[in-house]
Amino acid sequence: MTMPLVNRVIIPEEQINRESGEIEHGSIEEKRAEAARRLAIRELLRQRAKTIGIETRDRLDEAIDELLDREVPTPDADEQACRRYFEANRDRFRSPEEIELRHILLAAAPDDAQGRTAMRDTAEELVATLKEVPERFDDLAAAHSRCPSAEDGGHLGVISRGDTVPELENVVMRLPVGLAERPVETRYGFHVVEILTRAGGAPLDYDHVQHLIAEYLRERSWRRAISHYLQVLVAEADIRGIDLEATESPLMQ
């Protein structure tokens, strides 16, 4: 990688290596490239802070915050904007949903195609059986499930969003009360699922969510303002060895 230059200031390789260690996803080269972008943006902001008289030595983070407070003002969302957003997005504002469920896990590794096919077939057979004799759920869970909940008839208790793996959650949170018509596939295998109870999901009044809407709209405005501000700084700078023009701001991450 060519060492990035920001107005003739080099971003040292050791800094790039250290910063890349803070990035969780991507290949080594992708992490290094992202690290270089982040450091180049910070250097650009450091230079701008120094230009307008903000002390940056040994306090760069604080200096950047001060710089952005001065040069990227973000107005609070007014009542009219909040109400307009609420009316356009009413379905988003509901009380947290909770479901009580039990399941039978037919376990199979993600890379075991033959095993997954067999477990899917078994799961479908169990669904057919439970449609005929629903009172056997506890016994079938004890006999077939590879989840610790098998000892309690497959009972998982009450869950809400974020309590289980997304591929299971995305299905079960939409199911009606009762036995699911088809097994649910996840990374762990196939789940025979029964929803026992549902609660929550009731529409919320504007007064309950106004502060959340105001915070969201202000955050969205801030992101847009920061993006525009950085675009202006990048356009005015002499930057070499890295393309920042199409880069989303690391400040937004």
Rank of each mutant, 00 (worst) to 15 (best):
T2R: 13
V6Y: 01
V9Q: 15
I11R: 03
E19M: 13
G21H: 06
I23F: 03
I23A: 06
E30A: 14
K31N: 09
K31L: 14
E34I: 10
A35D: 04
A35W: 05
L39M: 01
L39A: 04
E43Y: 00
L44F: 02
L44K: 00
Q47N: 00
R48N: 02
E55Q: 11
T56K: 07
L60N: 10
L67S: 09
Q80W: 00
Q80N: 08
C82F: 00
R90T: 06
S95I: 04
E100H: 11
R102L: 02
H103W: 03
I104F: 08
L105R: 08
L105S: 03
D111R: 10
D111E: 08
R116W: 02
R116H: 12
D121Y: 06
L126K: 12
V133N: 15
R136K: 12
R136V: 06
D139T: 14
A141W: 01
S145C: 08
C147L: 14
E151S: 14
I159Y: 08
I159Q: 12
G162S: 09
E167R: 15
L168H: 12
V171T: 12
V171F: 03
V172H: 01
V172Y: 10
L175R: 05
L175Q: 09
E181F: 01
R182Q: 15
R187V: 11
L196R: 12
G200Q: 09
G200V: 09
G200D: 09
P203N: 04
Q210G: 12
Q210H: 09
L212Y: 08
Y216G: 13
I226Y: 06
S227Y: 00
H228R: 10
A235W: 09
E236V: 06
A237H: 03
A237R: 02
I242A: 06
L244A: 00
A246Q: 08
A246I: 05
T247K: 06
P250Y: 08
Q253R: 13
